[in-house]
Design a protein around this nucleic acid. Structure first.
Lengths: 121, 121
DNA sequence: CTGTATCCAGCATGATACTG
DNA sequence: CAGTATCATGCTGGATACAG
């Protein structure tokens, strides 16, 4: 997964939730935005490996899903800020226990990535 | 996503968790096994749309990730039971708040699937 | 019943170049 | 800076047939 989410039919809540966070970078985008707005370039630098095209696309999908708000400042050079909507924040909250599970798993198998600044999540 | 999980490097716990649960049917498999063992055919019937190949593959990956236990009874005809391991149960637990979020989302957008028996999840 | 072996298609993801 | 346009590709997921 995933491209644009399905909008159902869903078998259960897990199904629906995975549908909107399933994109390769989406949970990481939520993570990046968890404490405030970020500009496109900041997100790009914070997500080592994303291409511009893919980042833009996943952000648009999350915007359609009302998880992310896109604020455009009509200045030169362009300035765009992304932030979590209320739904985005609640989704991030719902993902916290999953993140904790993942951290325990990383500890078990020893697969942490130490070359990024936010390795605490 | 996803094929065989990466085994890192991971940026954060969310990353690691999404890696093992990102397969199209994996969260649903967790859901199916949440209350006890199931046979291959039962899972297949409970997951409308999976092909044998894909179901077998995702189960093998979850087995490698130690989320699922595969018990083979050497009888004729073959009898195999799948169940959650301790880690699988803890992952399912960590997913519950996400499932709740998804149910709220379904309620908002009205995308529930009513033709399956376990639409409560 | 529980799979594996092939073959296939689509799409998500990527790299790069170019634009307002 | 913040994208879009194009083109390339790998891989997940799917259909079907066959096997122990």
């Amino acid at each position: 997964m995933s491209g644009a989410p399905r909008t159902g039919p869903y078998v259960c809540g897990l199904d629906a939730a995975m549908d909107v966070v399933g994109g390769k970078w989406k949970s990481l985008i939520l993570w990046e935005l968890r404490q405030g707005a970020r500009r496109f370039g900041e997100l790009r630098r914070g997500l080592p490996g994303v291409s511009e095209r893919v980042l833009a696309r996943q952000l648009r999908e999350m915007e359609e899903d009302e998880l992310v708000h896109r604020e455009v400042y009509p200045v030169v050079p362009p300035h765009v800020e992304y932030s979590l909507t209320e739904q985005g924040r609640s989704l991030y909250g719902a993902l916290e226990s999953l993140g904790a599970w993942g951290r325990r798993r990383i500890a078990r198998i020893g697969a942490a990535r130490l070359d990024v600044e936010h390795a605490g999540g």
